[in-house]
């Protein structure tokens, strides 16, 4: 950052304010039509006020941010930082107009949404939750507290880092996400995610059958669950999960319909004696 006492240089305080507005308000005024547009405008407001002393310039500048915007709100912070630096360049008379800024935003929001959804929602949070669930078994609040502290710290400082990185490096800030190294890191994290998800499934979900076949002498000659365990522990759990995956991925059944199909399977299983949760008062 140059340290000229130019009025067109954003100071740390203004940038922090803009970041906080995004952190707390990216999705407060959400609608299906405009999604994060208003969160974006609200977080650019401190920047525009600082860069353009004249009110009519502010009004002109904000027009660039009225276009539709939606991305992963965590990783998307980097885009807000990039626009802050672009807006500063525009205020300093560089050849950047609202359209350039908008093209950048529109070009980045798709890839960032895809990477963010799989990296954060699909990998980081399940790993954190998986570990926390283990700590909370037996009704202990420890896991919940661990999740709150760990996640909020990662989210706050991670997003702050992304914002300032975006501001400092402009468009190059995302190269580490979409470049070769970014792809390698994502692939590596994906391995961790897949294995932990497998571990979560095995540790926490246990679909079992109560099917037992009795011989003429009243003794059990087939305990299906024991047989299945000797083949591969957790076989039924994995099969049900793969079945759900197959329905949703290959047959494009929605999550809600998949759940309803499970209700039907359970009902039939209960009627046939295949499933029995073994409850009584």
């Amino acid at each position: 950052m140059e340290n000229t006492n130019n009025s067109h240089t954003l100071d740390h305080k203004t940038l922090t304010k803009s970041f906080h507005r995004w952190f707390w308000g990216a999705l407060t005024c959400f609608s299906q039509e405009h999604m994060q547009t208003f969160g974006y405008m609200a977080s650019m407001l401190p920047i525009l006020r600082k860069l353009y002393p004249k009110h009519e310039d502010q009004v002109k500048a904000i027009k660039a941010y009225t276009a539709f915007f939606n991305t992963n709100p965590m990783l998307g912070t980097v885009i807000v930082g990039i626009t802050a630096s672009m807006e500063q360049a525009r205020a300093n008379g560089k050849e950047i107009d609202g359209e350039t800024i908008n093209d950048m935003r529109a070009g980045l929001m798709g890839p960032i949404a895809g990477i963010g959804d799989s990296l954060i929602d699909g990998t980081l949070i399940p790993i954190l939750l998986g570990i926390s669930l283990g700590m909370s078994s037996g009704g202990s609040p420890l896991g919940a507290i661990f999740y709150i502290v760990a996640w909020v710290l990662i989210a706050y400082f991670g997003q702050r880092f992304l914002y300032f990185r975006g501001y400092r490096f402009g468009g190059q800030a995302v190269s580490f996400l979409v470049g070769k190294q970014g792809a390698a890191v994502r692939h590596a994290i994906g391995i961790v995610g897949s294995m932990v998800v497998g571990g979560v499934l095995a540790s926490w979900v246990n679909v079992t059958t109560s099917l037992k076949l009795y011989g003429s002498n009243g003794k059990v000659f087939l305990n299906l669950q024991d047989k299945l365990n000797s083949i591969y522990p957790g076989l039924l759990t994995v099969l049900i999960t793969l079945f759900c995956w197959w329905l949703m991925t290959k047959k494009h059944v929605s999550a809600i319909w998949t759940m309803l199909i499970l209700v039907v399977i359970s009902l039939i299983g209960v009627l046939l004696g295949f499933f029995n949760p073994g409850l009584s008062y």
Binding site: S194, L201, T241, L242, F243, C244, W245, L247, T258
Partner: peptide, 11 residues
């Protein structure tokens, strides 16, 4: 299983 399957669809 549905929740895990949604995750698998993602990864």
């Amino acid at each position: 299983c549905v929740g895990i399957a949604i995750l698998l669809r993602q990864i």
